[in-house]
Simulated scan of single mutants.
Amino acid sequence: MARIAKSAHTERPWRIHELTPDFGVEDVWAFRTPGAGPDDFPAMLKAMQTSGGFARQTRPVRFLFAVRWKLGALLGWDKPTAGVGARITSLRDRLPSDLRDARRGQDTDAMPLKAVYEIGTESARELANKTVHTVMHLGWVRGANGDYELRMAVLVKHNGWFGRLYMAAIAPFRHLIIYPALARQWEQAWRDRNDLAEQQGEQSRR
């Protein structure tokens, strides 16, 4: 995994740009997926889903998220009235007709970010609370060595000065703990995707 320039996201013709002209790019990261080809983005998304999400993350990551959710509950950051469909409208309301008809992606309780759209080389999920409206954009890009790799961009629309302070305060935790742990999980999921598929097949046949 490597943190890369924001221009690596902004200069590509991603469909997400049509939906987020009022968002800023917070972070852009590249993840290693050795041997990946141009059509393997759906396989990567499937591998990420079967890797277990936050429930299988390291203790430091689970602790940080537990603290965040606890603070959110105490201070009212995550009330339904502050979320998508209440304080802000979903990006799905901005979708052009072709993306509206595209696959949306699967929502689960383990994934707090909800699906906006999913196509052959990119997907987007969103979350909103009293601090920010944020989007996790995943894209599939040919890397320098010829293999394709996963790119993640975090797009943010701050809810005033408090949202800006909040994102600045959590930046060290994101960069030093959360994103590196996420990278290890996702990159391992790519390497283990065939074993995971076989295990799921055996379970479905029982």
Rank of each mutant, 00 (worst) to 15 (best):
F63S: 07
F63M: 11
F65M: 12
F65Y: 04
V67W: 08
K70V: 09
K70N: 11
L71A: 12
L75N: 13
W77I: 04
T81I: 11
T81V: 13
T81L: 10
V84N: 02
T89F: 10
P96R: 12
P96T: 08
S97P: 02
D98S: 09
R100K: 14
A102P: 02
R103W: 10
R104T: 05
Q106H: 11
D107E: 05
T108I: 04
L113E: 03
V116L: 02
V116A: 01
G120N: 11
A124F: 06
E126G: 01
E126F: 04
L127I: 12
N129Q: 07
T131F: 14
V132H: 02
V132N: 09
V132K: 00
T134V: 15
H137F: 09
G139P: 03
G139H: 00
G139S: 12
R142K: 13
R142H: 04
R142P: 06
N145D: 15
Y148T: 08
Y148R: 06
E149C: 12
E149L: 11
L150S: 02
L150N: 00
M152Y: 04
A153F: 07
V154W: 03
V154C: 10
L155S: 00
K157F: 02
F162P: 00
A171H: 07
A171M: 07
F173G: 02
I178Y: 02
P180L: 03
L182S: 12
W186H: 06
A189W: 10
R193G: 14
D195V: 15
D195H: 15
L196W: 15
L196C: 13
L196R: 15
A197V: 13
Q199D: 15
E202K: 15
Q203M: 15
S204C: 14
R205V: 15
